[in-house]
Structures are given as structure tokens and as C-alpha cells.
Amino acid sequence: MTAPSVTPTGRSGAFVRLRPRGPVGVVYLALVGVYLVGWLAVAARGGDFVTVGNTVTILQNSVALGLVAVGQTYVILAGSLDLSVAYLVSLTSLVTAQTMQTAGVVPGVLAALAVAAVVGLANGLVVTRLGVNAFIATLGMALILRGYLEHNYTGPAGAVPTSFQHLGYDRLGPVPVSVFLLAATVAVTWFVLRRTRLGHHIYAVGGDEEVARLSGVPTTRTRVTAHVLCALCAGLAGVFLASRLGAGAPWAGTEAQYDLVSIAAVVLGGTLLAGGRGGVAGTVGGVLILATLDTVFDQLAVDPFFKNVVRGVVIVVAVALYARRGVDVRRRGMRGGS
């Protein structure tokens, strides 16, 4: 912390009201659009889409992916990405459940977060110190975790006490408790990214690492921290899924393809995949779009395989729309010749 405190926004950095970075408004317009189309589609079949129960389902469906995607936002903003989160979610769900079986709730959560932090630290150090591209580094980490999981587990293991299942199933009024966990994580992330020096450093490193370094930003520490925060969020998702499932499962994170889908959710939220632009508010929008789609499909009893087709199309079309609107995206786009 002895580095000169030159933040990219200058001395008054903490007080500058930042313009929204990235097309957050468009993201929420897209969300409203998806919601309206879903409403019409369900209504046409004689169903009722706009109910409290349905809204709660959408929120509940958002929690696990939301936690992973919020974490992914840190690393993508910093110009990295993390392909190991799916296996990390599985691993931490198992760590949670097995520790809770013997040692109680608090040690269980702490153990899961500690494991996550170590994995994130390893990712960050491999990316920064060894200079391995983040794609390969975290893909390698995913393979390592996968080998460990497949070698040691064939099915669910451990058990969480009933008291801990409150996190997965209880509600405060109509709102599931787990939604507050997501909301708190989002709030902390928003604060870190927008109101702390670390947050500004993350944007700076993701925008242009070399310029950030020359401006006195500790780029290595910033990127390692981003990887640790990402892993901690994935760890929270593992803890939540353990509570939801009542045990840990080696497929808890991989079945839903949280690695690629979380990246898609972040980009769907208007954050630039190359880093430096975007934010957690957009990510929440992206996650809600995917969760709304899921809920619509469930209500229409659409073939689950067909879901993926529509998901893929929606993701690509939405990102294409952002690219059309965002001048910056286009300037960086593959249109060098025009």
C-alpha cells in the first residue's frame, strides 16, 4: 500500500460521480422486452405470468448464476476471465457439506471460502507471475479441479444441517432469503468497483494494463485480487447450492455450465469482454434476462434442449444490439477496414 496514490480519476477520484460505463440502460430495456414477450407467450397459452410467485421464481433462479456472474464481472473488468468457476462451485459445495457434517455451519462456510480464495489466488498468480494467458491458466485450473473431483467423488457427499437449509428455502415475506445473499454480494461489489481505489484500479488495468502500470497502478496485485474476489463469489455460490441441495455434489456447478454461461451473462450485461468497461448493475440485468427466459420456458413446458437454442440466439442477438448502439464497442470492433 506504499505505492503512490495516483488513481486514474485523479486526486478527487472518490468524489467523482462516474457516468454509467457500458449500455446498462439497454440491458434493462432488453430485460423488459424479454419479460413482455414471455408474458405475451404465457398469456397466449392461457397462463398467468405476472404473479408474485413467478417473480419470486425468477429471483430464486438467479441466485446461483448471479453469484458466479458477479464474481466473473471482477475478472472480466480487469481484462481476465475465469473458466474454472464451474468446477470451483462443485468443489466448494462439497467442502461446505462435508465440513458442516463434522464441524458445524460456520466452519463449513469458512472452509469453503478459504478453498475458493486459495484457488483464486493460484489463478491470479499463474496469470500474473507466470504470464500464462488467463484463458489457458483458468482452463488448466478447471482440468485440475475436475481431475480431483472425479478421482474422489462419484456422487453427492456430506450433509448440511437443517438449520443451514434455511438459506436455500426460507423466505422473508415473499422474498427468498438467498436473494438477500445475492443482493448483498451485488451491493458490496458495486461499492468496491465504484467507490474504492481497488475498483478504479480494476477498471484501469482492464482498460489498458500498460498505461495503468505506468500510472502507478499495482497491476499484478489488482489482477490477483480480482481473481480472488471472483473465486470467493463462486465459493458463495457453492455454499448456497450446498444449502439448496442439502449436500455437496460434483455436478453442482458443471451441470448448468456456470463457466461459460456466467461469462455470457456478464457480456449480456453490457460489460466489454476485453475488460475496462461495464459494471455489476449490467451483470444483474444479464442474469435476470437468462433467469426470466428459464422461467418462461418452464411455464410453457418447452423442451429443455430447445431452451439452449433460444438462449444462444438471445445472447448473440442482445450483444449484437449493444454493439450497434455502443460507439466504443464498434470502434474496437472487427471493422478496421471501414
Binding site: I263, G312, V313, I315, V319, A323, M334
Partner: peptide, 15 residues
């Protein structure tokens, strides 16, 4: 359409 190829081909994969 200026979609990052990571996302474009990920979408194609899902489809």
C-alpha cells in the same frame, strides 16, 4: 454485427 467471437461462437455452441 461486431459480437465478440467468444460470445458469437459460444452462442453457436449452445444453439
Amino acid at each position: 454485427f461486431a459480437v465478440p467471437s467468444f460470445i458469437a461462437t459460444l452462442g453457436m455452441m449452445l444453439v
